[in-house]
Design a protein around this nucleic acid. Sequence first.
DNA 1: CTCGCCGATGTGACCGGTCACACTCGCATT
DNA 2: AATGCGAGTGTGACCGGTCACATCGGCGAG
Lengths: 345, 345
Amino acid sequence: MPAPRHGREPAPSIRDVAAAAGVSRQTVSRVLNASPKVSAETRRTVMEVIERLRYRPNRVARALGTGRARGVTVVTSDTMLYGYASTLQGIEEAARVEGLAVGVRVVESDRESDVRNAADYVSDPSAGGVIVIAFDAAGIAVLRALPESLPAAAAIEPGVPVVGRPAICLDEQQASAEATRHLLALGHRTVHHVAIPSESEHNGRLAGWRRALDEAGAAVPPVVPAGWDVRSAYEAGRVLAADSGVTAILCGNDDIALAVRRALFEAGKDVPGDVSIVGFDGVPGSAYWTPALTTVEMDFAGLGRATVAAVLAELAGEPQPAVSLTPPRLVVRESTAPPRAHGAR
Amino acid sequence: MPAPRHGREPAPSIRDVAAAAGVSRQTVSRVLNASPKVSAETRRTVMEVIERLRYRPNRVARALGTGRARGVTVVTSDTMLYGYASTLQGIEEAARVEGLAVGVRVVESDRESDVRNAADYVSDPSAGGVIVIAFDAAGIAVLRALPESLPAAAAIEPGVPVVGRPAICLDEQQASAEATRHLLALGHRTVHHVAIPSESEHNGRLAGWRRALDEAGAAVPPVVPAGWDVRSAYEAGRVLAADSGVTAILCGNDDIALAVRRALFEAGKDVPGDVSIVGFDGVPGSAYWTPALTTVEMDFAGLGRATVAAVLAELAGEPQPAVSLTPPRLVVRESTAPPRAHGAR
DNA sequence: CTCGCCGATGTGACCGGTCACACTCGCATT
DNA sequence: AATGCGAGTGTGACCGGTCACATCGGCGAG
């Protein structure tokens, strides 16, 4: 039989520390938890022993004792897409400064069994607080499937109703309207929209775009839907590229903008000479595109941090803190310009 | 005082199930762990009760009982950069199919205190197996700081020595050499290289490039270093863009390629007309760039999956399985072409 | 018929913390 | 002098599983 690879004397436990310090385990526990009911002297002694023994409290045992884990578990359907990944990053950061462990559980799809598995997974008290990134159907389904009693919060797109728990979103509508107005102000007759998948007709990007168009009295062209994959956005782009009436496109995110720009390129159309495009999200590379992309910068990391605050409040049974998120904001760069002069017509 | 928001009858425990099924808790435990020493009939009864009570075993209690957690914790210095994020994705996927929980702990920097904190964090047995994404100094430092006894594996860049634990890497050297040869074959006199930060002089991207140059008898220009941020890559690009002797650039990753391409654009140079560029990584959008990027596709997700297998073997005390990773491969697209004819000179 | 063995099941201790509560002081109050 | 009180500390039970070992009934072998 193979030698026990990782055999080793076990890590010191709280009892070892207590014995070495000549106090009870409870006193050590108090020191660990910064209880005020320990004399300064005792505290110092215990601290020294802890240091000497390199003692580290066992998170698992602690969680079992208290009944809840000092941590959060993030449920998401994706970890790579920019919005998801940055939200996750914000969550991780905030959790880390709070001393919380971070777990990740991805939901494969919005199929019922997948949703149930994910919900079951986080229903385990060891999951701690739960944060659902509910930017899509799968996430929303998990959010709905969570037992009422579970301390949870969600990052979500605007317009999706959530009852009974904090759901935080970035107000995209203003910025979307602003982006649309920007294009209109440049002289475009109207603005086309390639939309990301959405669970809500009231989603901010769509709503802001439509509102700005309405307010300007511009025609509202049919929405061109795209998926999360670049390929489908490319297909959508080809449709628009073939239409000579299209001079301005508001893209549901920067990936879509990339694909649309490619489709335009293949159709021999110049950006922004022939067609202006605006993205959404503000991925780090977008400033370095050629042309640099005009886009709406979204503070997903801030959103993530806010969900951590929310779930922490939920865990503590406190009322939800008022959060002020930095609102999405339009960054005008090179991909938008006035339409070609119509004099030639 | 606020009402207890999440008060609720506690989840059923194994004892509840045992009582309801008329068996002992140990028998229930055996059913849960698929022990063969349970009669088919008893097993069925217990299963039914479990279903009826919606019982789910408590991961924390189980971990405490067995002494080790059914999960892996990933240590990384970044979660957004493509290589890191895709590796993480691969890990998550593999862990999920194995029924393992996934934790994430980011190391803020390679400062000693940060490294120690991260190492301490995962030294807790509740962290389970540990996977270190050691693509940079911080990751490598954590890997080195881990106690010998800890079951861990690493995803790492080639050329960095690691002793005592499985360290898996993608062989970038072949592909890097191939990319360089591709450019040379196109007629370029030599190939410049903008490098990602690396902890090793023997790192694959650098080594393959140099080797191919040497073998072809081409001059080896000085390496232009860049950081992980797009900005620094842009600065590096400007230097190269100002040099009219530069006709081909091998970029350390696709982000760098993006920034270099931008710098070239600003300098009035066409890609691939004036300068050819090759990226590294194969980010999903690279196929949709204008021009579409010639790049080396890396299977980071596969790398991540392999580390899970490795840490699992480590955990079980088994010998390391032989892994066959899909090797990086050059994908030729539009950003590479023969240099402009020199006749004009 | 008795023994031994095996499959199936149960029992108590234990993992490493925390909780609720009890206890022991020393000092101020009545 | 008895009482009250609060700060500081210790004790036993417990969280929800698992482990090691004991037990029990039935069956084939000696």
